[in-house]
Amino acid sequence: MNSLYMPKDSFIHNLDPRTKMIFVAFVVLSSFILNDPALQLLFLASLFPLVVAAKLVKPYLISMQFLLLFAVLIMTVHGIYNPIGVTPVFEIFGGLTFKYESMVYASVMSFRILVIGTAAVLFVMSTHPSDMASALVKWKVPHSFAFILLSTFQIIPIIAREAKIVMEAQQARCLDVKGSLIQRVKNLIPIFAPLFIITFMKVHQLSYVLECRAFSREGTKTSLRDTKIGSKDYAFLLGIVVFLTFEIYLQIFLSGSFNLTTNGLLTYSLIGTWAVFALMIAKFVIKRVQGFVGGMADA
């Protein structure tokens, strides 16, 4: 399997891909409606049970690490340097002050990335690409477009392998791949030019094959995998609608009357991301050191 799809038997996996696509759209929309760090944090926490229900906790946390990098960067840099900040919250070594307004701005932005990332990861990991393609076709998306999406999964590993072959062939002709950075960037041309040509040729050949498999035939097409919208999907969609109404109500009628965002929350979420980030770095360093020590022991 070349995609990120993780075959599991769960409630989320059994949902129709169309339901899940609506869910992703809903999450993106909500992340903009809930324009407040505290509410977004709550929303993120409320998405986590879905991840647990999909039995994807471990792969989810692994992919979240990368998004967390963005969050750390945004929260730190914006928190200190964003010019909209006025009210100082706390100060770290010598003059670098985190300000309330800029921290709110940064938190909203980075929580939004995490929330949307969570939904996207949930969708990609729980939906079989072929199902997604056939669901799109049911939404009257052109068959060829669905095929392009699907064949991407197939062509990426082939291109990766061809790239390796081209790289080795060019190395055999004295292409320096271990030189300085500028030299290496320059060397991308003799690698990418043949790679593009090979890929175009392969795709061209594939177009003949598709023609021979009646791809351009007019009339209805059928597919092996079927997706059906069942009672589960309707229940899920109902849940989404209820949640959305609640969010809009919250924003319109209650936005001024209560405020969950405090200095403490902002500070703790910042420190929290730092802590997780520090853990990640520590893990990385330990792995490196272990590898190094192991290498020494082997020698």
């Binding site: 070349n2 064949s151 050949q205 995998r225």
Partner: peptide, 11 residues
């Protein structure tokens, strides 16, 4: 290889 475009053999 160029003739294959789907995720599994049966598809």
């Amino acid at each position: 290889e160029n003739q294959l475009s789907q995720m599994t053999v049966e598809e």
